[in-house]
Every structure is written in C-alpha cells, then in structure tokens.
C-alpha cells in the first residue's frame, strides 16, 4: 500500500513537472557560487533553461571530482535531458560524462575544457590564454615595457591558474626590461593576496606593477599597496568582476579581462535545446569564447560579467 502511494505521489509530481516544464529537466553543475563568476554561470543557465521551457536543477561540485561524479549519478537518476557542466578536472571529468552519454544524456561543457573530444556534445571554452595575453599586453603597455613586477598566481591545482600564468609570461617574458621580482600563489583569495603582498612589499620595496591571476587577488594586492602608500603601482586582474570595475573607475586597479560567464552558460543551454530538438548543435564541438579587455575606457559598461 505504502509503495503504491509513493508511486502515486511520484507519478503526480512527475505529471505536474512535465506539465509545467514540457522540455524536461536540465541539470547545471558548477563550482561554488560563493565566487560570483560561477554564480553568474548558474544563474545564466537557469534563466535560459526556464525561458526555453525546461525545469532547471542547479548543483555544486565544489571543485571536488568525487562529488561531481555523484552529482552525475543524481542527474542520471533524475532522468535529466541534458547536463550543463563547468567541470572539476580536465581528466577526472571524462568518466562521468561518458557515463551520462551511455545513459543517453548529452553533456555541454562551459568555461573549462576536458582533455578528450567526442564525449561531450559541446565544449564552450573560455579562452583564458587569449584573455591572459590581452591582460599581459595591457600590463606591458601600462608599464612602458620596463620595471619590476610581481605575479600573484591562482590555486596551483586549478587548470586556469596555469593557463593564465602561461599567457602572461608568453607576453611579458618577451620584454627583457620587465623583471619579475616575486611570484607567489595566493590561491585565488583576497585575504591571502593582501597578506602575501604585504610581505612582498617589505622584501621588494621597488616595484612598479602587480599582475594577478584573478580579480579577488587583484583586490587584495591593491589594498595592501594602498596601505603601504604605493597606490600608484599598476595592478591588473582577470575575470571582470563588479568589484574590480568599481576599483578601475576609482582609478586604482588599471585593467582586468572579462570572461562572459553568463553568456557562455546561456549558449550552452541554447545548444542543448537545439541538440535535443534536432540532433545537432550545428557547431563544432570545441568553441573558444574570447575574453574582452576592461580598462577605464569601457569599465562603466560592465555589469555582472557582461558588457552592456
């Protein structure tokens, strides 16, 4: 009896859900929304899914590959029509995506790519390397191609920390008069960047620039520099957050690089929709999304990871 009741309730729930959301369920799995960048992805995916008539379920893997694998099982068990994923590891993510594929559920990657093709239907990749080169070129220009600088690197286990650093160096290292006096990881963290910057300033008082792997570290570095009376040091970040936009408009941080997080998530849902309806996205699997340089000229147009 209990079982029948449960089945009945489930059936009713299913019925209501399918009446409201004719398209079925789209599951979006991202890193923690504590970082506004990832929140923007989740919000973008949810809004577009609802707009196109799907139910949206937002899940968070916290950059933990095991947790991500469990969330894939959840998505499979819930009978998702498609999965939107900002993944937790270029290699570790391949197996769960294959599992979903075997269960007939296509996965659409956003922001970060995986080291294998023909598993996901689309990989809409944020071009971190191109973005880092843009940021690096702006930094070189602001520095007048010379001077002492510091690099704050992101979390060393994160693919994008490496890519951005590589992009910066591929530009900056071509200018022999630019000398890196310190290079440390501040793990994407504002407070850690503040503390590391404080001690770097003590050891190297003669610095003209700081290039950072993301915006939160740029905010921390800028605060430490101002506290040390070095507010004129050139600071460049990466992400395009509203905090750094405001700092640029106030004349503190000089530039950042915008990754269109919201739009990337929307595009993934649009492509999922097209794929579900026609069997093809009509686009190559791997799609690079270029980043955009933000400086005092266009900062006022920036709002929540999109240019107005």
């Amino acid at each position: 009896m209990k079982k029948m009741l449960a089945a009945g309730v489930t059936f009713c729930c299913f019925l209501t859900a399918s009446m409201v959301y004719a398209g079925g369920l789209i599951v979006a799995i991202t890193p923690s929304p504590d970082n506004p960048f990832f929140k923007s992805e989740a919000v973008g995916a949810e809004a577009k899914a609802k707009e196109l008539g799907y139910e949206a379920l937002l899940l968070v893997h916290d950059d933990d590959a095991n947790k991500q694998s469990e969330l894939f099982d959840t998505a499979i068990a819930r009978g998702a029509k498609a999965i939107i994923l900002d993944n937790a590891g270029a290699d570790a993510s391949i197996a769960p995506i294959e599992r979903a594929k075997k269960a007939g559920i296509p996965t659409f990657l956003i922001d970060r790519e995986i080291n294998k093709t023909d598993v996901a239907i689309a990989q809409i990749v944020s071009n971190n390397y191109q973005g880092a080169k843009l940021g690096g070129e702006e930094f070189v220009k602001l520095m007048g191609e010379k001077g002492n600088f510091v690099e704050l690197v992101g979390k060393e286990s994160d693919t994008n920390a490496g890519i951005r650093s590589q992009g910066y160096h591929d530009v900056i290292d071509q200018y022999p008069d630019l000398k890196m006096v310190a290079r440390q990881s501040a793990n994407w963290s504002q407070t850690e960047a503040y503390e590391k910057m404080e001690s770097i300033i003590q050891a190297n008082p003669d610095i003209q620039g700081v290039i950072c792997g993301n915006d939160t570290m740029a905010m921390g570095a800028m605060a430490a520099l101002k506290a040390a009376g070095k507010g004129d040091v050139i600071v460049v970040g990466f992400d395009g957050s509203n905090d750094v936009r405001d700092s640029i408009l106030a004349g503190d941080i000089k530039a950042t690089v915008l990754q269109p997080a919201y739009r990337i998530a929307e595009m993934a849902v649009e492509q999922a929709d097209k794929y579900l309806k026609t069997g093809s996205t009509g686009l190559p699997e791997k799609q690079l999304m270029d980043c955009v340089l933000i400086n005092s000229e266009n900062a006022s147009k920036l709002e929540t990871f999109a240019l107005k």
């Binding site: 390397y129 071509q174 190559p284 791997k286």
Partner: peptide, 27 residues
C-alpha cells in the same frame, strides 16, 4: 620580434580548435 595576436592561426580554415587537446596546445 614580438608579434601580437593569433591572426595567422585563426585565418587557416584547415585548422580547428576541436583537433587540439586543449587551449594551451592551440595557443
């Protein structure tokens, strides 16, 4: 000796990002 951008790579219609393992190789 420094060249900005990736105009040559991006103009070649026989080169596709999908054929490369990741954006670093492509870069």
């Amino acid at each position: 000796p420094v060249f900005k951008g990736s105009s040559i790579r991006d103009s070649l219609d026989f080169i596709s990002f999908t054929d490369f393992t990741n954006q670093l190789e492509f870069a």
